[in-house]
Design a binder for these strands. Structure first.
Lengths: 166, 166
DNA sequence: CAATAATATGCATTCGGAATGCAGTTTAAA
DNA sequence: TTTAAACTGCATTCCGAATGCATATTATTG
């Protein structure tokens, strides 16, 4: 029982943006991926989705980056998880099109599992990003340390012997 | 977000055994796998685990099979799921030995996710098998129909040309 | 005591979703 | 016009779950 790394990264991304109090500062995907030490390419997908959800604003072009499109108190964790998880099919019979269990129509287990699933999400519904900012200064310090430890621009150190011909 | 098929099969197996009111009747793994139309070999593993957990009794040898070791009211769903799921590592930082998130020590998200996970299991803790027996007759009818639809003994129709030598 | 039918166990393979990487396009600032 | 960033699609890798095969063990039956 777990959430996808995609949802994990989505939550981390908005938490990163919220942790830098200045709402106008842009943070690039590159920067966030270095702070968390995770794949930049993977994070690009997450950033897209968050932009589509209207929860972050992406500024394209040079000097661009991401920033929160809403106040931290407006970003609900349960809402976010519901939209980033690919599905909530706890067991086979939750997907009618592929279910093979012959007693699905008379089985009470499904109802119990639905209740459990809703209870899980209801807890997350209680939280907005704002509630996680009580440790903001510590998080910022840890982010900065991580950024300092990582090679600043490991993008393309090869600036010689370029095969110009062919 | 989902449970493993292993947990799913474990719940189904005990529900099957409970649905046949006669607590002394043995149901073979073969029978259960046909009733649900699922892999017999896979179900063998589940049956082992349930036996180890002391929740079913396995009778080996000819005419053997499985039966509940406890009354349906004694078999709790939350308890069962906790013991059949391989892990409950909702996100990366739940597994300290492989965590790479630098702010884990200062991040409030983990606490929220732990609360959500416990809420999920707490709902399942409210249920025992007994509560699912209100539709027992319907389930039995559906099981019987499934068993009738399946080939009775597709085990080994080859009873000729046995290689006796070698 | 032998044959049979069932569970028990280990190993090897398959499979699917998630994760990742690569290549290229588009946009906007300098 | 160059450059740095977000966007997009595709192809591949990877891992855990699922599955299958082979065999050992146990106990009943005749």
């Amino acid at each position: 029982m777990h959430l996808t790394q995609f949802s994990d990264y989505a939550m981390r991304t908005v938490l990163y943006l919220a942790s830098r109090g200045d709402g106008d500062r842009l943070a690039s995907v590159e920067e966030i991926s270095r702070a968390y030490r995770i794949s930049r390419h993977h994070l690009v997908r997450v950033a897209q989705t968050l932009t589509e959800l209207g929860i972050v604003t992406a500024q394209r072009g040079r000097g661009g980056g991401l920033k929160l499109a809403k106040a931290p108190s407006e970003v609900n964790v349960g809402w976010l998880v519901r939209r980033t998880e690919p599905n909530f099919h706890i067991v086979e019979c939750f997907r009618p099109e592929t279910n093979t269990c012959p007693i699905a129509s008379a089985c009470g287990l499904k109802g119990a599992l639905i209740r459990a699933r809703e209870a899980f999400l209801a807890v997350l519904d209680e939280y907005t990003l704002e509630q996680f900012l009580t440790t903001r200064s510590e998080m910022v310090a840890l982010f900065d340390a991580a950024l300092k430890a990582e090679p600043p621009t490991p993008t393309e150190p090869e600036a010689e012997s370029k095969p110009e011909a062919d």
